[in-house]
């Protein structure tokens, strides 16, 4: 069963197509990661699932828990928008109770106490929201989205701006919700987090779907075309190696993308002639690498960008 299903959905804003003919199925109980460059249509897609935006008239349908465009499913969804906002003058406890009440829950004390404890905010329960730091209010906003134990969690960039400890707390909380049977959809720019957490990755670029599947299936499309190497005498350029299309320099480690049909052993031989090879690994591309391969501007686009910047 699918928790969310989009069938040929489009959304246009004043002549600009933000989402174009998108079809997507999110299986119930999975964690689905939405990635894509800024302005590619992630948030618009999430807002359409939330019924904040309606798809273009005549375009496809969106079903949430098999219900087509009905507000009845809203109480089963927890939503953390990209742009956060809370009633600043309310006390944290009252605010969370308001969200529980609006979702029709009658038990307040237990969930509020448990969630504040879990995200280390117990001592702030009776403080006004305006007294909290940015990170704290972000955690409160997350609690507001999940406190009614929704079956579907839609989180728009939940980790942005959080310190590593808070990120860990949130990640653990999300996984715990999944263990309880909830479906999780979240958008992120943290590729490593998406790679580690998500059962499925969906990438949207210029309003259209460019990737959709498990990490393995996505990586499978690219094969073992990536070499991670460390050659002693760091800093020397590995550009222009025969059989290598692209080099990404991480400082201590360099990632080489092989040209189609190139032989990794040949590349190793060339490298050994350049210096002592301390690390050599034949790997599949990371999500980060795949993202960049898709979203990096085409050479022609890049050139025209440079030309524009020069004329300014």
């Amino acid at each position: 069963m699918n928790a969310v299903e989009l069938v040929r959905v489009s959304k246009t804003f004043k002549g600009c197509r933000a989402v174009d003919d998108l079809t997507l199925s999110v299986p119930a109980g999975s964690i689905y990661g939405f990635i894509g460059p800024n302005g590619s249509g992630k948030t618009t897609t999430l807002r359409m699932i939330m019924r904040i935006y309606y798809p273009d008239p005549g375009s496809g349908a969106i079903r949430v828990f098999d219900e087509e465009h009905s507000a009845a499913a809203n109480h089963r969804i927890g939503y953390l928008p990209e742009e956060r906002g809370l009633y600043k003058k309310m006390k944290v406890r009252d605010l969370l109770q308001f969200f529980l009440e609006i979702h029709g829950r009658r038990e307040f004390k237990g969930p509020i106490r448990d969630w504040l404890k879990r995200l280390r905010l117990s001592e702030w329960a009776d403080k006004k929201v305006e007294a909290l730091s940015k990170g704290m209010s972000q955690r409160i906003q997350f609690i507001a989205a999940v406190i009614h134990a929704p079956d579907l969690l839609i989180l728009d960039e939940p980790f942005s701006g959080l310190d590593p400890v808070s990120t860990e707390d949130l990640r653990e909380a999300i996984l715990e919700r999944r263990r309880a049977g909830a479906t999780v959809i979240f958008s992120t720019h943290d590729m490593a987090m998406a790679e580690k957490m998500c059962d499925f990755i969906f990438m949207i670029y210029k309003g259209g779907k460019v990737l959709d599947g498990t990490m393995e299936s996505i990586q499978g499309q690219y094969g073992y075309d990536t070499l991670r190497v460390r050659v002693e005498g760091n800093g020397q350029s590995l550009g222009g190696l025969p059989g290598v299309d692209h080099v990404t320099d991480f400082g201590r480690l360099q990632e080489l993308r092989m040209a189609p049909g190139a032989d990794s052993q040949r590349v190793l031989e060339t490298l050994m002639r350049k210096g002592r090879v301390a690390h050599f690994e034949v790997a599949r591309p990371t999500l980060h690498d795949i993202f960049i391969r898709i979203a990096r501007p085409e050479p022609a686009e890049a050139q025209s960008d440079t030309a524009v910047s020069r004329t300014r």
């Binding site: 939330m50 904040i52 507000a71 809203n74 109480h75 969804i77 939503y79 928008p81 742009e83 956060r84 906002g85 809370l86 009633y87 600043k88 969200f99 609006i102 979702h103 906003q141 507001a144 989205a145």
Partner: peptide, 16 residues
């Protein structure tokens, strides 16, 4: 205020 402080989006997700 709800629009400016971005509370509206959370509310619209909870109620019509």
């Amino acid at each position: 205020e709800e629009k400016m402080q971005r509370i509206a989006e959370v509310l619209v997700a909870c109620a019509s």
